[in-house]
Nucleic acid binder design. Structure first.
Lengths: 160, 160
DNA sequence: CACCAGTTTCACAAACTTGTGAAAGTTGTT
DNA sequence: AACAACTTTCACAAGTTTGTGAAACTGGTG
């Protein structure tokens, strides 16, 4: 049974959790509102109404989310306005891997290694950090592939 | 060859990168300064001097880092002041896994699932999100174990 | 017990972030 | 062209974060 109140609470808590990790508040709310909607997609106006915030706030949030490819903008047939949706995978796939997060950290660390003394403990330490990020860069990709495979299997099993 | 200027640049860039992900700026700088030091550990005073910031700023930063177990405070023999060091593994281990980050996200998501309509698309979507976080919670731990094993192997190979 | 090196706490100024209302843009329809 | 339905941009108020200097605290030493 859908409890609007609890859904709002869920959206808000999840958004605040993401916000703690550096995600802009409003963008997080918009993302979670889209995730929690039974509709496949919502317009900017619908988002503003559900969250009870100004249209301006939505405008900024969707721009941010689009940059990260966390949402797609889709024209609504028979209306002048567009709607936004969270593409099926994009949310883990795009966000975590495609950002090249670990690769960038590894590159930065490599710069560090080159600035440090050959004999020194610091160089050792930073080199290990770099290797760790390289490891993650490789492995996280594989991990997500495994997730997608497992999920598809599970879904197939259910639909039989 | 150690280039102080480049090391400072590295510390700053790395710190800003972490700051973008919600990490407090000064705490990130302190962490990276410790990582880039040839000394095994540094006192609050040394940190303040190297970063050229007030003692007060260091005080706040080390308190934060200690809470996350990203640094340890160690008494300096023959001195009244303590020193701080980054324990060997703690930095990936503690930060990413121990936080129970994914578990918390999964729990939050589960709340969402319960608030949503049984037939609806939203429930499906959020349930999948929850399962994803559960998957990560399991797998990331294993991943880190593999990293530690691989690193130790590598280190052993080098020391022969 | 007074001192002192070193650290912590506190109130505050500066800089940034967040969300708003109002005005300006768009785009399709009459 | 004028309108209607939306969306975007902009200046700003409120709230938060960041780092500071100064004062209070700590614990070993002369």
């Amino acid at each position: 049974m859908r409890s609007e109140l609890e859904v709002r609470a869920f959206v808000e808590q999840m958004a605040m959790f993401l916000a703690d990790w550096g995600f802009p508040r409003m963008a997080a709310r918009v993302l979670m509102t889209l995730m929690s909607a039974d509709e496949e997609r919502l317009t900017a106006g619908e988002l503003a109404e559900r969250l009870d915030v100004s249209a301006a706030a939505i405008s900024g949030a969707v721009r941010y989310l689009q940059q990260l490819h966390l949402i797609d903008r889709v024209p609504v047939p028979g209306s002048r306005s567009d709607a936004y949706e969270v593409p099926r995978n994009a949310w883990y796939t795009a966000a975590i891997v495609k950002g090249g997060l670990y690769k960038r950290l590894a590159d930065l660390s490599d710069q560090g290694v080159n600035a440090l003394d050959e004999g020194g403990a610091a160089r050792e330490r930073i080199a290990e950090m770099r290797d760790f990020f390289l490891f993650l860069d490789d492995e996280v990709g594989l991990l997500l592939d495994r997730w997608v495979a497992e999920r598809d299997e599970r879904r197939q099993a259910r639909s039989w």
